[in-house]
Design a protein around this nucleic acid. Structure first.
Length: 554
RNA sequence: GCCCUCGUAGCUCAGCUGGAUAGAGCAUCUGACUUCGAAUCAGGGGGUCAAGAGUUCGAAUCUCUUCGAGGGCACCA
């Protein structure tokens, strides 16, 4: 049990002795941001004073007097009723050995205890290339998957392919047009056709493979064009995602779900909650708080988008996950209520389904928003962005804000090689630590103790290192990877402050150097582990500025 | 009109199960390089937490009202 938990347990025991009802959630222990306030602080006396008919400070005094714990030096009550805990040095320092021993497994939790979670993200239709919104969803989804894995869950990363609806028909028809174009047969693109240049490229590829085989009668081969197009574009999407360090485990095809008859099965099960109106079949979703009831089967007999999606989620529930997480674009938010309502009708627990809405991304360059790519004239694609700023910067920036707030992506900042760019700041810090470890060989063996690491910046570091598990826990519970980037940045700051104030390798003070090397190694490990959670690389050296500039001039 | 998300420093955002002086980054200004990587560090300035009311020992945080921004309100996907 770590020291924070021990303190909480002791507080709980004291309150119980005072006959005050208390739950684990009541007791909040935070790392102090001010050394005068000790290492950790709790507001529990403020929260419980009224219940016991005492003034907060009176309760704090009383609790401080009763508090007894080996790892804690002293407890100070403070106005208006806080309790400040000063942890013993060896207790604080013990984290170094723990980190070094666990290495890349430091931070692993058992929150999941083998529970299964399914995370569905990106799920873009295979009708074109991925854009910025998809890229953000991809980065967020992948990070959430990494977080859950770190927290001890069994994680499935899933992509839902809408390969059966109108959009694919549209794709097929668009491809036919582009294909015919290559044989000088004129035909207008369908009204909602796809204008992307990737379709033109695709048509050329098709021509190379089959020649003029379909020119005389393309329309009776529509299915071929649909399949050819969507397969190719899907492969392309996977390729781009892979480059972005995003690889998913399961690709669920809407078409396959339809072909297996899942849709009809679900429809039968939902029938009791359905009614017919104007020739269409409606599902009663207003009973679960929806604005209006939703159509499942249109009056022309075709299914709406919703119905196969219900079948798909039904399938996911039936696969036995303890938790389902969907990342949707923010424009789908109205959709959540009806989907949950339907799953509830099917006998599933809607609480198990969490939907994270991913807000829009705006790109800024040279202080101005820019939407269109000069090269293609279309919206900027994920691939173009990666080529421009690199995978590390893109991954970091996309997850650095809460998913439900809009993201302004500053391309200039992402490309800056300097401390104002948080990505380089973190990577530089890591490289710096690696440099020290390398240069410190003369001081080996390292001493993984912290008896001499008593300065303010060293203590701050120890507390930050200890806090890592807690950050993972919170980030995981809230599905918010930005907590990790915040942590990375503040840890890097603490490290650099320590570096400036505390000389690590010092011939005049060998014992201190040996301990500081241990701290450096622990810091490096935690920083690397945190960066790994957002799939940003942790280099052991940086390409020097001079080289960079030289190569630019060349 | 109804529903979501949101309104915090010049800009982009944290903080929101009520708690110590409202925090970061960018931008701006001032200092610090014969020493482990100055791609760094230290320090300034900058806020009526959109406005108003309520709840109480205490509100950026909870409730209500108003104003403003973006998105959604299909027998589209």
């Amino acid at each position: 049990m770590d020291i924070q938990t021990e303190i909480k347990e002791e507080l709980k025991k004291i309150l119980t002795d005072l006959k005050c009802a208390v739950t684990d959630q009541d007791i909040i222990l935070t790392a102090s941001n001010n050394r005068d306030h000790g290492d950790y602080a709790s507001n529990i006396a403020l929260r419980k004073a009224k219940m016991l008919g005492l003034k907060p400070i009176e309760l704090a005094n009383k609790m401080a007097g009763m508090f007894k714990l080996d790892g804690v030096d002293k407890v100070e009550p403070a106005m208006p009723g806080f309790l400040n805990f000063f942890v013993k040095q060896d207790e604080l320092g013990s984290i170094i050995k723990v980190i070094v021993d666990k290495n890349e497994h430091y931070g692993d939790l058992d929150l999941g205890k083998g529970k299964k979670v399914d995370i569905e993200y990106v799920s873009a239709n295979p009708t074109g290339v991925l854009h910025l919104g998809h890229a953000r969803g991809a980065a967020l989804g992948d990070c959430i998957a990494r977080l859950y894995k770190k927290a001890g869950y069994e994680v499935t990363r899933e992509y839902y392919i809408n390969d059966a609806g109108n959009q694919i028909t549209n794709l097929g028809n668009s491809l036919i047009c582009r294909y015919l174009e290559l044989f000088n047969v004129k035909r207008d693109l369908p009204e909602d056709g796809y204008h992307g240049e990737e379709i033109i490229e695709l048509a050329k590829k098709l021509k190379n493979e089959v020649g003029d085989k379909y020119v005389s009668d393309p329309d009776s081969h529509l299915d071929f064009f649909k399949k050819y197009g969507s397969n190719f574009l899907m492969d392309n999407i996977k390729k781009d995602l892979h480059e972005f360090r995003v690889d998913q485990d399961v690709y669920s095809s809407e078409k396959a779900i339809r072909d297996r008859g899942e849709v009809e099965k679900v429809l039968t099960l939902l029938k009791p909650n359905c009614y017919e109106k104007d020739g269409a079949l409606f599902l009663n979703t207003t009973k679960d708080g929806d604005d209006k009831d939703r159509v499942l089967v249109k009056s022309d007999g075709a299914y709406t988008y919703l119905l196969p999606d219900i079948a798909y989620h039904n399938d996911k529930f039936n696969r036995g996950f303890d938790l389902l997480i969907d990342l949707f674009g923010a424009d789908h938010h109205g959709y959540v209520t009806r989907l949950k309502s339907a799953e509830k009708d099917l006998g599933h627990d809607p609480e198990k389904l969490t939907v994270s809405l991913v807000q829009m991304v705006r790109l800024f360059k040279d202080g101005e928003e820019f939407k269109m790519s000069k090269r293609t004239g279309n919206a900027i694609s994920m691939k173009e962005l990666i080529d421009e700023v690199g995978v590390d910067a893109a991954r970091y920036f996309f997850v650095s804000r809460s998913s439900n707030s809009h993201l302004d992506f500053d391309i200039n900042l992402a490309k800056t090689l300097g401390s104002e760019n948080p990505v380089y700041y973190a990577q530089y810090t890591h490289a710096r630590l690696c440099g020290i470890i390398k240069n410190g060989a003369a001081f080996y063996p390292i001493n993984y103790k912290a008896d001499l690491l008593v300065s303010e910046s060293e203590k701050n570091l120890l507390i930050s290192l200890k806090d890592f598990s807690n950050v993972i826990k919170v980030a995981c519970q809230e599905n918010e990877p930005y907590k990790i980037t915040n942590y990375v940045h503040s840890l890097a700051q603490s490290i650099n402050e320590f570096y400036t104030k505390c000389r690590v390798l010092d011939d005049a003070n060998v014992e201190l150097s040996k301990e500081r090397l241990g701290l450096v190694e622990a810091c490096r490990t935690v920083l690397a582990n945190a960066l790994d959670l957002i799939a940003v690389s942790a280099p052991d050296h940086m390409v020097s500025l001079d080289k960079e500039e030289a190569s630019k001039e060349a």
